[in-house]
Amino acid sequence: MRRPMGRLFPLAALLACLGVAVAGCGGSSGGGGTTPGGVTVGPTSAMDHTNIVLKDRFGQPITLTSKEPYSPNETCGPCHDVVMMANGYHFQQGRTTAAGTIQTRDDFFSDGRTWLKSDGMYGKW
């Protein structure tokens, strides 16, 4: 079941690269380091997912002594357009439109039901 991403979806990889920030695709940053096994990990190819550094909300790499929660924005955001992804309807649940514009307002359906503020779970109640 567990297969390396890149080999599974070469075309997706190419397309994703056009959409992701330079770091992941250009292989120019991302920290680098060595796994416990001694193998050097670093962004070696466009499909590389071996080098995801866990980071906290302040953008600091997390170490074993840290008690700070990890931050998905800081961890995945350097390579992926998290803001665009988080405009999907699962994340917004009625808060924004396809274009990412905030749409919550009183009487969303313009039929007098002032208490309905959106068309999704955040607001339509």
Partner: peptide, 16 residues
Amino acid sequence: VGTDGNLYLPETLVTR
């Protein structure tokens, strides 16, 4: 744990 002491996600942890 990397040799720099930072924590990394194993590649196999992420699924499409």
